[in-house]
Design a protein around this nucleic acid. Structure first.
Length: 212
DNA sequence: CATGGGATTGACT
DNA sequence: GTCAATCCCATGC
């Protein structure tokens, strides 16, 4: 399938995702995500792979991780802390449990619906809408119902980098909010982008660079 | 079947 | 800086 995205570009196909998850995590930066009339550019991602214990797939195939081990190019959506939905893109060949967590977006369109779904006032800054994995899922209206749906032809679509995002400045760092495999630098984000979920690089010149 | 722990966020001291 | 909300699911009895 080569279904179109909002701007007319064909959505990324399964072949894009059927590669090493670290490559995909890096290359998804600058790509677009859309759902329910809203869209944004991906500015922060994290990679997860069944070979390391921070990944849900580390425990093997269970009802929860079946999507992770399934076909690449599908959405893996799960609930975090009983409250938030987390949107991931399943990667690597079927049988490998790997995914890219989409952690932040720069809003592109549907800003008003994002604000409404986030329950924010019209005066809320655009940077508040999608600057975190739970926030962007809420802003786009993504729920667990979209788990296992195709990112090429389903309700949630990921498109290629727009021309102005052809070569974004990408920084890597350690992943956020996990307690195992904390040393892996499997987080990627756009340098200096204000929609990134945490100050990156650390705002001040203090010695907290090594903390996370 | 009971329990415990989150790939987070927002409110509050 | 601290902390609670809240639900899915993996694990262990």
């Amino acid at each position: 399938m080569c279904a179109a995205t909002l701007d007319g570009s064909p959505a990324l196909t399964a072949a894009f995702y059927e590669r090493p998850v670290l490559e995909v995590a890096r290359e998804l930066i600058g790509c677009t995500v859309e759902h329910a009339g809203a869209a944004g550019v991906i500015v922060e991602t994290e990679a997860y792979h069944d070979s390391e214990p921070a990944c849900h797939a580390f425990v093997g195939v269970t009802p929860r991780t079946r999507t992770l081990f399934g076909a690449p190019g599908r959405a893996y959506v799960y609930r975090s802390y009983g409250i938030h939905a987390m949107l991931n893109a399943v990667c690597e060949p079927e049988g490998v449990g790997a995914a890219v967590l989409i952690r932040a977006l720069e809003p592109l369109s549907g800003i008003e619906s994002m604000r409404a779904r986030r329950g924010l006032a019209e005066t809320a800054r655009v940077e508040e809408l999608c600057s975190g994995p739970g926030k962007l899922a809420q802003a786009l209206g993504v729920t667990l119902e979209q788990n296992a749906s195709s990112l090429s032809s389903g309700p949630v679509r990921i498109g290629p980098r727009p021309p102005e995002w052809a070569d974004p400045p990408i920084l890597d760092g350690v992943r956020v909010g996990i307690s195992r495999a904390v040393e892996l630098r499997w987080r990627f984000c756009v340098a200096g982008n204000r929609n990134v979920s945490r100050p990156w690089p650390p705002a001040s010149g203090r010695a907290d660079a090594a903390r996370r």
